[in-house]
Design a protein around this nucleic acid. Structure first.
Lengths: 361, 361
DNA sequence: CGGTGTCATGACATCGGTGTCATAAGCTGA
DNA sequence: TCAGCTTATGACACCGATGTCATGACACCG
């Protein structure tokens, strides 16, 4: 591979002059420049970023680690795909800053992380971004503190800068919209127990109810998915059954994710119920392959993973360039819109006797 | 950041001795080694791969480019996700070889590729892998020929080493299995016109028929998906309708992908047909979020993207290490099993009059 | 006891760029 | 006309590792 010396010799100038042509950081005579460019072209010269970054102490590299950190309790489909969109978003943002991405996947084995971090440090990455497959708390090895770090879709106990999905806000907005469309009895099938998002979503649900003067009814909130991946939806039938047998059954059921919606559609259909005529259904994540192609199409909360990646990337770039705003919060929330589709029917706002009775109690 | 000189000074040895401790390439006295290790620990020394690779002329880096090259004619859902699995498979394989991955996404803009390649060349990648979102022909800029190249999920006009899905074999195996289970009239809803996989799949379908002495009936093969992303399934209803109105309608319909299966389920249900009792359905890709969660679960052909990635990575490593087998084909096919689920019913092998008549002609 | 081999270590050059400083030529204005 | 400035270029050192070669201290052998 040709070096700057080869180019210099061929062009009859010094290596430094070639360097100047390359970087345009000092005036070079037009004739000389042409000669140098010609020499570079004829040698198909490609500068070595190793040499360059050694001298400049800047690698132009960003490290990115993806994959589960804590014990995987979600299937790849549910947990692994979102982070892809985050990766893509981050990738694009970094590309705009002229940074190149080093990427590694833990393959679900958190014990690999120190080695990955070590490799990144050897490459003198200017920053590191850790992307989790789902909203969770993580604990990274101490060695990451040798570089700048931003988390995405997760957080740690040290207040590391992070970008998180606004689970509370999303569920709140969805619930509020359902109420606005005339629903008063809103069933809620939750995420697995240990998921960070679960209490947040519930909080958003409750806040929307409270803001609209609707009492929280614990009977309407039941387990949708279980932690045990192999038996994720084993409880779904029972929960649905209990919701539907309530004295005042819900007019709409919020599912904690779109995959659950697929199952719920099937179960309701088996009970002879029609969506949305007999009962409305809403999902979460706006996993388009489901929400757009299932029939009826699914109302869902868009969880903008791509945006999360971009925001995390920008945050990291601000850390690197030292342009972090003084009052910048270490934790940023990203929320997406509720996407209204066929699975939810607006109800006429006539309040049924049942519901008014509830309200009076 | 501490250097090998700092470590040497602190340990009271020469830099070269530190280097020997690091690489274990020459005997070092135990006491000295301890002193060096202690010094490295107290300085949290991390070797610089820039310096190392400059000296050794080996970067330990592999470049990876993902994203559409030709005009995108598929939605992100259909086209963009598979390559993720390929990326993951490749990542794991490279990790085993101790290579670090540089990754870039074209973001659907093929004109970015030369710049990405340039960046990779500057980093002196030891090889480059290009991953396409769907089986297609590509044309990469000439500059990639400055490094070793392997394609995945695509091929070019120059016989570049590549790993491809065995579309013909997959559709053949599925069709053969359907025949084995008693089906004789097999409908086939195809991929969009311009897709490389389309004629291959059709060939596999035809070969399976021929092997089993069943005449090919062009009436059974109709357009499933259209090239125009926004109107992808606009023809689906019509095609289904034509299949079902045939004098001898199919007993099973093969859909070109699992997304199409979702739509077909809905359309058949609207016609009052029950799957698999009235008609059987099979998909392709084994996109598990669909095939495992749709009801009934979907028989599909597993397209092992992860394996493709691993194979492509291994192929590239063989090119790099020069251990390519003499008779190694430049093009490798990867196939996956047919995954049998509820959407296809085995038919009793009693041959209906219609079918025997067909066979006799 | 001296020659030979092994062990342990260090001096020095080198990889391919770029920062610093020096130098020479050409131009301007007092 | 010459100081003072800009333009254009080169010499040289340096970034942080490692390959090559040299050297000194022992141990072993005849």
């Amino acid at each position: 591979m040709a070096t700057i010396y080869d180019v210099a010799r061929l062009a009859g100038v010094s290596p430094k002059t070639v360097s100047r042509v390359l970087n345009g950081d000092a005036p070079v005579n037009d004739k000389t420049r042409e000669a140098v460019n010609a020499a570079m072209a004829s040698l198909t010269y490609v500068p070595s970023s190793a040499a360059r970054s050694m001298r400049s102490q800047k690698s132009g590299l960003i490290g990115m680690i993806t994959g589960a950190i804590s014990t995987s309790l979600q299937s790849f489909e549910a947990a692994g795909l979102p982070d892809i969109y985050i990766v893509q978003g981050a990738q694009r943002a970094f590309a705009e800053h002229g940074m190149t991405l080093l990427i590694s996947d833990t393959g679900g084995k958190p014990d690999r992380i120190p080695a990955l971090v070590q490799t990144f440090l050897e490459h003198r990455v200017e920053g590191l971004i850790y992307i989790a497959g789902w909203h969770q708390q993580v604990e990274l090895p101490a060695s990451v503190r040798k570089t700048k770090l931003v988390l995405a879709n997760c957080f740690d106990a040290h207040g590391t800068p992070t970008v998180l999905p606004d689970d509370e806000g999303g569920q709140h907005d969805l619930t509020a919209l359902l109420i606005h469309k005339g629903h008063r009895r809103i069933g809620f099938l939750t995420l697995p127990e240990r998921q960070t998002a679960r209490p947040l979503r519930t909080k958003g649900y409750q806040r929307a109810l409270a803001e609209n003067g609707i009492a929280y009814d614990a009977d309407l909130v039941l387990a949708g998915a279980l932690s045990d991946e192999a038996h994720e939806f084993d409880r779904l039938w029972d929960s649905l059954d209990r919701l539907l047998r309530l004295p005042e059954p819900p007019t709409v059921i919020c599912c904690a994710n779109d995959k659950m919606v697929m199952r719920v559609y099937t179960l309701l259909r088996q009970r002879g119920l029609s969506i949305p005529d007999d009962i409305s259904i809403a999902g979460y994540d706006d996993y388009k392959i489901i929400t757009e192609h299932l029939h009826p199409t699914v109302t869902s909360v868009d969880l903008p993973y791509g945006v999360m990646g971009m925001r995390a990337a920008d945050k990291l770039m601000r850390l690197i360039t030292g342009t972090t705003k003084p009052n910048e919060p270490s934790q940023e929330l990203v929320s997406g819109p509720v996407v209204w589709r066929e699975s939810v029917r607006a109800r006429d706002t006539v309040v049924t006797p049942f519901i008014s009775r509830r309200k009076e109690t």
